[in-house]
Design a protein around this nucleic acid. Sequence first.
DNA 1: GTCTATACGGGGATAGAC
DNA 2: GTCTATCCCCGTATAGAC
Lengths: 187, 187
Amino acid sequence: MDAKERLIEAAQDLLWDRGYTGTSPKAIQQQADAGQGSMYHHFAGKHELAHAAITRSARQLRAEAELAFGVEGAAMEKIGAYLTRQRDVLRGCRIGRLAADPDIIAAADLREPLVSTFRWLEGELASLIEDGQATGEFSAQLDPTTVAAAIVATVQGGYVLARAAADPEQFDHAISGLMTLLKGNAA
Amino acid sequence: MDAKERLIEAAQDLLWDRGYTGTSPKAIQQQADAGQGSMYHHFAGKHELAHAAITRSARQLRAEAELAFGVEGAAMEKIGAYLTRQRDVLRGCRIGRLAADPDIIAAADLREPLVSTFRWLEGELASLIEDGQATGEFSAQLDPTTVAAAIVATVQGGYVLARAAADPEQFDHAISGLMTLLKGNAA
DNA sequence: GTCTATACGGGGATAGAC
DNA sequence: GTCTATCCCCGTATAGAC
């Protein structure tokens, strides 16, 4: 693997664990086993490297979610597969995590992968809810868009609760509560 | 107001906006209009000052939530009052925000106010749900504990979505979806 | 492409004077 | 209690050699 590649992966890793503010060029170089000159040859600076890393993390996250949505079954099963998919809960969401970082929020290009990832996710979930309404699986009273937002928010918040408590089960509790609420809204 | 007080308030503010990693002693001193010597006279260092600030923020958050829970009405109205209370959405949650910070998570004493705040909040909400079940307002099928966790998670995640999109309405969507789900679980 | 040298301000704190 | 001086390493680059 060439240095450029290693730098991007190291940046992905560090951004996930420490955010943008907490990640220094030097730390990235060390983890990538690349020199100062190498990094600044391939990227204009921390900002540009972070952009490459975040963009790639967003693509990966989306691919993983697509995998969960691809299971066979009715709408609720697909949603359930997404909600209960394997996650490194205490590490948090590599995309949602960045929303806490003031420097990410302040830079439109760094924030963009966050917006589009969440917008896409909510769209997928909203479609599933509509499907479920068409087949009589969900109550027609539900507004697919806002319910989808609530689902995504519960996942993101589940990470927050789990990390605050240093206990992955807190994530599962939130998801479990959400699934009960969803199932109580059968047609 | 004395310097010590100003330092704590400045630290609360900066921690809210920039997190622990993103907040420097120098920045706190400047915002508090206090000198280096003053800060290190009153506090052993950044860590100790942050502890004072976080503890106080947690108390304030709790007081604000108590106010919302205090409205007259049935369980769903109290929950609704909490969910729709005035918030500076794009600024995020001053407590939940810290869960993204690796240095906070690594320091048990800094993390403690986060755990206890969320535990308390979930407890209050779980009680309300039980009340609602007793009066026939909510379905007996609901598990008060996990549903309470889902509610708190949705709020925390709502902040994440809103900040990612730089749009406060994303918070409202998530809350609105959650309230629909709750109301669909009437007894 | 990668290395080393150099730069300058900031992060986080200690020491001693007033 | 607060001020100023001082410390040392880190953050974030740029410059030029190889």
